[in-house]
């Protein structure tokens, strides 16, 4: 974090991704936050610094509450080098000077992780019995795709095919397939493999939800939300206990999103550990 927390917090690289000047619109409104659409990327505005999205802002609850009550889908949002201004159709404009917004850096260093921690990942994830918790059905297609991702010797075209199959597959704001890709990309980024390239980012914008596309966009730069960032921190510290705890915290996200993400992390771990064909899985097999 940099600067004095006063009115809120924001992703440190927000302007890198959304530009210094832009116009957006309120895209979606949830119970605790709302999303602003800027050219297909969603800036999530909430009120909890601890739940800051990979591309997000968190406002002081006293500021957020009245704003949340008056915004409506389609409302205009403008920002410039100096400020962010939200123009709720049923309220008065809220102007947030950037200078009063502290930054939160959730960028995971690329390729800087000690490979020895992989065993710790594998052990923790195996204990979670994720096969029965993920949001996709264990059918032949999923088995094929999983195989393609976890095999160290799979070629790139197979993996791209697997990604395409996964993107947008499943229910919810972040479909299960996207969460699996996200977990997979997160793990590999830490160990120096960039899974999500520009083409996959574009494909995500076409094939899945704007929320997922934003998540994958940010992950393509190694940027995460608080939960995955905590996983990185535990792994970086080499603390198996913290790693196990942080993975379990990820598991708590959404209905199956957490499980899907950790499942994806597990696939990345298996790929790096050079695992062969997947051992007999629980659930659908």
């Amino acid at each position: 974090m940099h600067g004095e927390p006063w009115q809120g917090w924001m992703t440190a690289s927000l302007h890198d991704h959304l530009g210094v000047r832009a116009t957006g619109h309120v895209h979606s409104i949830f119970r605790q936050s709302f999303n602003i659409d800027v050219d297909g990327l969603l800036l999530n505005v909430g009120q909890h610094r601890q739940r800051l999205s990979p591309l997000g802002m968190a406002l002081d609850p006293t500021e957020f509450g009245p704003l949340w009550e008056t915004v409506a889908i389609g409302d205009l949002v403008r920002w410039s080098a100096r400020k962010l201004a939200i123009y709720p159709s049923r309220g008065t404009p809220v102007v947030i000077p950037w200078e009063r917004t502290a930054t939160v850096d959730h960028a995971v260093p690329y390729g800087a992780m000690n490979p020895e921690i992989l065993a710790g990942f594998a052990e923790s994830i195996q204990a979670l019995s994720l096969d029965t918790k993920i949001g996709l059905t264990w059918d032949a297609d999923l088995q094929r795709v999983v195989g393609q991702l976890r095999r160290a010797d799979a070629d790139e075209s197979e993996r791209q095919s697997a990604f395409r199959w996964l993107l947008g597959r499943g229910k919810g704001l972040t479909p299960s397939g996207d969460d699996i890709v996200a977990g997979y990309a997160f793990l590999l980024w830490m160990f120096g493999i960039a899974v999500i390239d520009a083409r996959l980012r574009d494909e995500a914008r076409q094939r899945t939800t704007a929320t997922s596309a934003t998540l994958l966009h940010m992950l393509s730069f190694g940027e995460t939300g608080q939960a995955l960032f905590d996983v990185w921190r535990a792994a970086n510290e080499g603390s198996l206990q913290n790693l196990d705890h942080s993975l379990k915290r990820v598991l708590e996200i959404g209905h199956t999103s957490g499980a899907d993400t950790v499942f994806g992390i597990g696939l990345g771990v298996e790929r790096l550990l050079g695992a062969g064909n997947r051992p007999k899985a629980g659930g659908g097999e």
Binding site: G74, D75, L76, R78, Y87, P88, S89, R90, G91, T92
Partner: peptide, 14 residues
């Protein structure tokens, strides 16, 4: 953002 008298409903903005 509130239309007064004979006025259209125009989205608030900058």
């Amino acid at each position: 953002g509130i239309p007064l008298a004979f006025t259209n409903v125009v989205r608030p903005g900058n």
